[in-house]
Design a protein around this nucleic acid. Structure first.
Length: 113
DNA sequence: ACTCTGACGAACC
DNA sequence: TGGTTCGCCAGAG
């Protein structure tokens, strides 16, 4: 908990299982900052800059919308990555989002690291 | 030092 | 149903 906010975000993102997705808000809640979803997104933006090898494409907004696709270079890069994992995407929307959703609060230890 | 801007989300009109 | 406001807080100008 003494680490920078980004570091904690990165750690959670690293644990997102293959073929699953989560939301910025869910990560924020897990980190104890329920209202800092924006910071989570901001941290992801920074991760690209830091060349972190994170499955950032598995993080979408609460509606399952690929709001961060613009930051993956090619317009469809994010969608391609997800579809490569078996996640169906239609019009920037994760299909069957409910089933694909991975909540760190439920799947991860309450006090990871 | 100050203002503006977000890969968000929830609360309000 | 849908637009606007606000909280969050780290960078950029």
């Amino acid at each position: 908990m003494n680490d920078p906010f980004f570091e904690r975000v990165y750690r959670v993102v690293e644990h997102i299982p293959f073929g699953r997705v989560t939301s910025y808000g869910a990560i924020g809640r897990y980190l104890g900052s329920a209202r800092s979803a924006r910071m989570v997104g901001w941290a992801m933006n920074a991760c690209v800059k830091n060349e972190k090898q994170l499955p950032a494409h598995r993080v979408v907004n609460r509606n399952g919308l690929l709001t961060g696709k613009a930051h993956f270079g090619e317009p469809n890069a994010m969608q391609m990555l997800l579809e490569a994992e078996g996640v169906e995407i239609d019009d920037n929307q994760v299909q069957d989002f409910k089933r694909r959703f991975w909540d760190p609060i439920e799947e991860l230890p309450p006090d990871l690291y």
